[in-house]
């Protein structure tokens, strides 16, 4: 039994929550479209880390799969949006 790991988990959760608030403010305020996409990219990585943190806190392995799926779909989403900004379409004919 130890008390330091739950403390560290809570501390890191608070850090990620604050980081997500920062990204959210940039997402709502961002002057250009690329700022918003950058904020979304940061938001999904922080969300994935939050899920992993819950996995450590509850000691359950199922959170790993959720984090892997968030990483996969977040990458596909933000790359598709960046590509759309670059060329005006996602999949070129």
């Amino acid at each position: 039994m130890n008390a330091i790991l739950p403390f560290a988990v809570n501390f890191a959760l608070a850090c990620f929550a604050l980081a997500m608030v920062c990204a959210l403010i940039r997402l709502l305020r961002g002057p250009a479209a690329q700022d918003r996409i950058l904020a979304l990219d940061t938001l999904y990585i922080n969300g994935m880390l939050t899920i992993l943190m819950l996995g450590i806190g509850f000691g359950a392995a199922i959170y790993f799969d959720i984090a892997l799926l968030i990483a996969l779909f977040g990458f596909v989403g933000s790359t598709a949006m960046a590509k759309f900004l670059l060329r005006g379409e996602v999949i070129e004919p």
């Binding site: 330091i4 790991l5 403390f7 560290a8 988990v9 501390f11 890191a12 959760l13 608070a14 850090c15 990620f16 604050l18 980081a19 997500m20 920062c22 990204a23 403010i25 940039r26 950058l38 904020a39 940061t42 922080n46 880390l49 943190m53 450590i56």
Partner: peptide
């Protein structure tokens, strides 16, 4: 793990703070 979690949390927080 405690040391790693505190470092990781602070690094991520500073990185996202840079957005603002």
């Amino acid at each position: 793990a405690t040391v790693l979690l505190i470092c990781g949390g602070l690094l991520t927080l500073v990185g996202s703070l840079g957005l603002l």
